[in-house]
Amino acid sequence: MSQLLNKAKNLVSEKVNDVAKPEASVTDVDFTRVSKDSIEYLAKVSVRNPYSTPIPICEVKYSFKSASREIACGTVPEPGSLKAKDTTMVDVPVKVPYNILMSLAKDIGADWDIDYQLDLGLLIHLPVIGNITIPLSHKAELKLPTLSTIFT
């Protein structure tokens, strides 16, 4: 009996692995504003839903790293849902405190930018299958705002 149950589990597992899953990519990370204690950026994530029904996004977790250090992390609860058979843009606000930027002065240096890695996990709920996390990682260079960008 246990062999039959194991075969059934393996069959279901194989079928679930063959099912098309949503795909995501970071399309852009832009400066949005300066506050009294931090600089805020907005990561734009493009998510393609292959299913004919909308899928709710339960949460988005992010980790923003520079010089192999985590400089910001957070969670965006329930940012919306993915459109059926379409691509949806999901906005992930990232807040970087000034005190951490000062500790990265060596990286910022002469070119006034930060080499960063943004790791995201989109937790979505698929009917029948349950919750799955779409992991993604994006490496790039981010320009820090200058006085002219702050006051325009």
Results as ranks from 00 to 15, higher is better:
76 V>M: 04
120 L>R: 06
95 K>L: 00
102 M>Y: 15
107 D>T: 13
150 I>T: 04
67 A>I: 07
24 A>Q: 03
42 L>E: 09
72 A>M: 04
48 R>Y: 14
12 V>Q: 09
40 E>G: 11
107 D>F: 01
1 M>L: 11
52 S>D: 15
25 S>T: 07
130 G>N: 05
63 S>K: 14
15 K>F: 04
30 D>Q: 10
58 C>R: 15
53 T>D: 11
46 S>Q: 08
36 K>G: 14
82 L>P: 00
51 Y>P: 00
103 S>E: 14
142 L>W: 03
24 A>C: 01
83 K>E: 11
65 K>Y: 02
32 T>F: 06
55 I>L: 14
29 V>K: 00
15 K>R: 11
133 T>I: 15
66 S>V: 03
47 V>Y: 01
57 I>K: 02
34 V>F: 08
102 M>T: 14
139 K>F: 11
32 T>S: 10
127 P>N: 07
94 V>R: 02
56 P>R: 12
51 Y>W: 10
113 D>F: 04
121 G>I: 04
75 T>V: 15
49 N>P: 05
105 A>E: 12
41 Y>R: 01
106 K>A: 15
144 L>P: 00
53 T>G: 05
86 D>M: 03
44 K>Q: 12
142 L>T: 12
16 V>A: 06
68 S>H: 11
145 P>W: 07
140 A>R: 10
129 I>S: 00
136 L>E: 08
68 S>N: 15
59 E>L: 13
96 V>Q: 02
24 A>P: 06
74 G>Y: 07
150 I>R: 05
9 K>P: 00
111 D>K: 08
45 V>F: 02
62 Y>R: 05
110 A>Y: 08
14 E>W: 11
123 L>N: 12
114 I>A: 06
138 H>K: 11
41 Y>W: 06
88 T>I: 07
68 S>A: 14
123 L>H: 09
79 P>H: 00
